[in-house]
Nucleic acid binder design. Structure first.
Lengths: 163, 163
DNA sequence: CTGTAGGGTTAGGGTTTA
DNA sequence: TTAAACCCTAACCCTACA
């Protein structure tokens, strides 16, 4: 009902880290005022920064383990969905059950070229994130090799997402 | 392992509904504290209330689009025929019970219409195609589904690179 | 009044159980 | 296999106190 949760994007997390590195933890308002970060973090409050930093603190470990890859995938999943944005939220809010039905019924992810209305992109995004989600649960005998490829994909995705 | 399941009684459901009517949804702790409901709901937590309200909502509203998308993808995966050499995307899914008919159509990732850094796309393509190739050879009970998901992921990457 | 620290609560994805 | 119940935790809220 209130504002939907605003999940942190990789860009925002990076800005926060950079800010803490520059001013130290606890200087949330200072970080927000810095022109270097104010753009990216414009939708965040000083308290938001504090809370996010607290959440990130639990993750101090390195990358490489399969478990870490799984978690990374999970976080990325959320990040991408959020990144695809405000429009997603808007359409979700607007759509009554019938619209939701219609969207699914006409699920046509056009060719990459023209058709890419924002809406179809969002739809694609959701579908694919679901796919990734399913993949990580699909189990199977060669989990290790799968995880390896997923790690590669995660890395590539993060690269691409930086525009 | 967990606590034995405790099914909701009609009294509890009624109290929950009354509580939401009085304070609005999202005020779970407040509802619990209200002497009017605290007796009936004494064995429930605020999170329990939230979860129950969600379950009741699903019944009232029908399935959400997200859940439908997830199922559709699952079915698509099962119904899909393996197509060895091509990249594929979902192109169509007829409504309702025919989600199983969702099919895949081939497309090229290096399509000229895709702007942005074409070179990186190609490299990405090679990298991932190699991954898929290895994956398919490695054997495994659900390699087909894995390949499908990765293929869809590739398409997502091409879309992202365009922005 | 402004900002931070820290405990508390909610939202929503995920998992388990019947 | 599905749906209700339950779990995990990021995101957000509340309050004390500098």
């Amino acid at each position: 009902m209130g504002a939907p949760k605003q999940k942190w994007t990789p860009d925002e997390e990076a800005a926060l880290k950079a800010g803490v590195h520059k001013y130290g933890p606890g200087k949330w308002r200072t970080i927000l005022k810095d022109p270097e970060f104010s753009k990216v973090l414009s939708s965040r409050s000083n308290v938001d920064l504090k809370d996010k930093w607290r959440n990130m603190g639990v993750i101090a470990n390195g990358w490489g383990s399969r478990e870490k890859a799984r978690l990374a995938l999970k976080r990325m999943n959320q990040a991408r969905k959020q990144d695809e944005s405000s429009l997603a939220v808007i359409t979700e809010a607007k759509s009554d059950e019938k619209m939701a039905e219609a969207r699914l019924a006409t699920t046509s992810i056009g060719s990459p070229q023209i058709g890419g209305s924002k809406r179809s992109i969002i739809r694609l995004d959701n579908l694919i994130m679901e796919a990734i989600s399913n993949l990580k649960e699909s189990g199977g005998s060669n989990k290790t090799s799968i995880a390896t490829y997923i790690e590669v994909l995660i890395f590539l995705l993060s690269l691409m997402s930086k525009r």
